[in-house]
């Protein structure tokens, strides 16, 4: 029976004498992610970890080191290189893979890159389709991977909020959002027919804030582009466009030095920087608290049409 209204009160806070140490949310998230990594490594024949060089990948890589310690990471890392990644990212990628003792595979859609595919000539949708989605599907097929870890989180975007931890993909790598396998407790259905595969998202329940706090607590290295520095930028309206390859300046545009950083890492033509003074991780976290825009607001590709992330995912994107 419900208590009478006057009796409803909050339970007293636990006192230190009775309360055993509580696990913080980060330890709980870590334990869940490690469980997922170990399940996949044990149940699939050829898993691979998509390593995109960003902060989420860095956290995922550290979790993989933890999951199999003192053994090595029992699967390779795969980077899908569009040819438009910032130079700093590639240097960082190679160093990270080396220090983690993991095998690194790099895949590029050389045909499309040689044909001059870029987001200025094509639209972003078709560019992503060729350089990311197609390249990814080709790589998975080439190596015959049956499970691929990705660092996507459910808090990033609303179609991702509906994504399973084990996301089933048919033999064409496509996602069917209306026909997802139910996912109960921590019991993941790893059964697939030949040619089908599973995308696995060990960071599903992490938020952007959790990721940064974990990087801070665990002292995980991240690419320098995340930290504010004086950088040469084209200023176009509210947008700060970094100078890298394939950038086409409009008449009269001059690059200028702006104290800025990247909030999420993508391809240089489609990733805007933000004005920022945050040059340490605590400063980034403090800045995050003050943000009124979501992390992917500066990623052109999420906004090219209504429900565009869902459409990309259906086609095989992460």
């Amino acid at each position: 029976m419900p208590a009478a209204e006057s009796e409803i009160s909050l339970p007293p806070p636990p006192t230190s004498a009775t309360a055993p140490p509580r696990l913080s949310h980060l330890r709980l998230l870590e334990a869940e992610s490690i469980h997922i990594l170990r399940e996949v490594a044990s149940e699939f024949e050829r898993p691979v970890m998509l390593y995109s060089i960003g902060k989420d990948s860095s956290v995922m890589l550290r979790l993989a080191q933890k999951a199999f310690y003192p053994g090595p990471i029992p699967f390779p890392l795969l980077h899908v290189d569009t040819g438009f990644k910032f130079a700093e990212m590639l240097t960082f990628r190679d160093a990270m893979a080396r220090s983690a003792g993991a095998e690194l595979l790099v895949w590029r859609n050389e045909g499309a890159i040689a044909a001059g595919t870029n987001p200025i000539v094509l639209d972003t949708k078709r560019c992503c389709g060729l350089l990311k989605t197609q390249a990814l599907l080709d790589a998975l097929r080439h190596y015959n991977f049956d499970a691929a870890f990705g660092g996507a989180r459910r808090d990033e975007e609303k179609s991702r909020a509906k994504e399973r931890i084990y996301s089933f993909r048919d033999s064409a790598g496509q996602w069917d959002p209306k026909n997802q396998r139910p996912e109960l407790w921590n019991l993941y259905n790893a059964r697939i027919h030949p040619g089908e595969s599973i995308r696995v998202f060990p960071l599903s329940n992490w938020t952007e804030m959790d990721v940064w706090q974990y990087i801070h607590e665990e002292k995980i290295p991240v690419v320098d582009l995340y930290f504010a520095k004086e950088r040469l930028m084209y200023v176009r309206g509210d947008a700060l466009l970094p100078i890298e390859q394939a950038f086409v300046a409009r008449p009269g545009e001059q690059p200028q030095l702006v104290k800025s950083r990247l909030r999420s890492l993508g391809c240089s033509p489609c990733t805007g920087a933000i004005r920022s003074d945050a040059d340490t991780i605590p400063a980034i976290i403090a800045e995050l608290l003050s943000f009124r825009s979501s992390e992917r607001a500066n990623r052109t590709i999420d906004h090219d049409q209504e429900g565009s992330m869902e459409i990309k995912k259906r086609e095989g994107y992460f």
Binding site: R154, K158, S159, R160, A161, K162, P177, K178, Q180, S204, N205, E306, G307, E310
Partner: peptide, 16 residues
Amino acid sequence: GLRAEREQGITIDVAY
């Protein structure tokens, strides 16, 4: 989050 949900005005699947 899904287009079908917004179009039909119903919730179909679990969202976190």
